[in-house]
Structure formats: C-alpha cells, structure tokens
Simulated scan of single mutants.
Amino acid sequence: MKMKAFQLKRIDKEYDMHLQAWLNHNVTASKEQNKKMIPVYKKFEEFFDYEARLEEVEGIKRKKLTKQQKKMAHIAARINAERRF
C-alpha cells in the first residue's frame, strides 16, 4: 500500500510539473497585430482571476445577466424609484 501511495503521489507531482510548463507557455503567448507581436495577456488578472477562483471554491456563484435582463432590471429600478414619491 505504501508503494502504491508513493507512486500516486509521484504522478500528482508529475501532473503539477506539466501543468506549470503549460501555464508558462500560455503566459508567454503572443499574437500578431499589424505585423507586430503583442502579448495575449496584458495583465496577470486576464490570465488568472484570483477572485473568481476564490468564489468558485467558496461556492459563491456569479450570475451573468443578459442585456435584456439588465435592461429589465434598470426599468424595474426606475419604476420602484418613481413609486417611492
């Protein structure tokens, strides 16, 4: 059992090393724009959204609203504001 646990732990380390190599490749990625190479990610936050990952782990879900939902929410807020007076 100890040997199998050691081998599984080793596989996890190999996975982490390969993941790190993949991330290193992605972070240095560039694209061509007007015959000039520019980085794909200009900020670290574009590459890794720390806050979103924390929310994902904590079980907090961001709800993305469609344009129509945003418009309806704006209209509802305006109507509610008018009713207060």
Rank of each mutant, 00 (worst) to 15 (best):
I75S: 04
N24D: 11
M1P: 02
I60G: 03
Q20K: 14
Y50E: 14
P39I: 05
N24L: 08
Y50W: 14
M17T: 04
Q7K: 15
Q68N: 09
E45D: 09
A29S: 14
I38L: 09
I79N: 07
E82G: 05
D49N: 15
S30W: 00
F48Y: 13
Y50S: 09
N26K: 14
E14P: 00
W22V: 05
K71C: 07
Y50P: 01
Q20D: 08
R53D: 04
R10L: 13
E32A: 03
N34A: 06
F6L: 15
I75P: 00
K64N: 09
I60F: 04
R10C: 07
E82D: 13
V57M: 08
R10T: 14
R83D: 08
V27E: 15
Y50L: 12
E55T: 05
L8E: 09
T28I: 05
A73L: 11
Q20G: 04
Q33H: 06
N24R: 15
H74Y: 14
R53N: 09
I38V: 09
E46A: 01
I60C: 02
Y15S: 05
K67L: 03
E51S: 06
K64S: 14
E55D: 14
A76V: 08
Y41A: 01
I79Q: 02
V40P: 00
S30M: 07
K13I: 10
